[in-house]
Amino acid sequence: MATMIAHDKRGFDFARWGLPALLILMLVCNIAFWTQARHARTTWGNVPPVPSERGAIIAMLGDAQMGYRVYGLMLQNLGDIGGRITNLAQYDYTALKDWFFLEDTLDSKSNYIPALAAYYYGATTKHDDLTPVIDYLEVIGQRPEPQKWRWLAQAVFLSRYTQNDLVRSFDLATKLANLSTPDMPAWTRQMPAFILVARGEKEAAYDILMGMLQNDAEKMDPAEIRLIRDWICDKILTPAQAATHPVCTSIPGG
């Protein structure tokens, strides 16, 4: 019996041979798995369906502000998964619009989501997709709170200079000019005239700008007055008309 025990002690040494063998086997299995799975990539299912307002709040344990921030971060980083970045042209902008308005129900005063919509998602190269963004900014930009008007101004910019839609941009510019928010600068009321010039309707643009000079010049910054004069003299009037027009000849050096 003692001889058998002594033999067992001289038998297979697991700590010396078994453990290294097990580690080598695990390494071989890991390499085999990697060779089969290394080309697999996480697939992106595009913009997820938007929940209801009630469902969104319940998911955040009744905290609307936490929901606004969590969903906002989700929208900010949406599509950036698996070490890859998704081109903005691949996003479903109709679904994004639903998310923007959901966020508005959670916090209508914050400018975080409007800024994300205007300056981030508004940079897409697929210009037709911008319509849902413009629709959203149009609604937000007509709010009476300070600085909300700038989102409507951004909608005008996207419609006019990115989509080159002179009809929609004029409608938006007219809404912007008709706002009565106290902190709006004078150039916001000039926007319809600028678009009318682009449409070739120079007489209507002239009437708008001249009306501003005649009625509001005392309340305007000198730089804004010079801008209006430049538009009248350089873009609306012909050189012959500008040479004799009082607005143009009153400019020093004009």
Results as ranks from 00 to 15, higher is better:
N178F: 06
E145S: 15
D98E: 15
V156C: 02
Q190C: 10
A117R: 04
L130E: 04
D128K: 11
Y91A: 05
Y161A: 15
D107Y: 05
T174K: 03
L78C: 12
T131P: 00
K126N: 15
A205S: 09
G141H: 13
I208V: 14
D183T: 10
V156M: 05
L196P: 00
P146Y: 10
T181Q: 14
V139P: 01
L152E: 01
Y206L: 15
T124Y: 01
P192R: 00
T94F: 14
A186V: 11
F101L: 13
P144S: 14
I140K: 04
I134T: 05
P146I: 05
A117E: 11
V133H: 01
V197D: 08
V197W: 00
F170P: 00
T125S: 14
F157G: 01
S108L: 01
Q90F: 04
D129S: 15
Y120W: 11
A193P: 05
P114A: 11
S180T: 11
Q76M: 12
F194Y: 14
A153M: 08
M184W: 04
P132C: 08
R199T: 08
Y119H: 12
L172D: 10
W187C: 01
L196Y: 03
P182W: 05
F157I: 10
K202W: 02
T131G: 02
P114S: 10
L213W: 11
D129P: 01
R199C: 09
L116T: 08
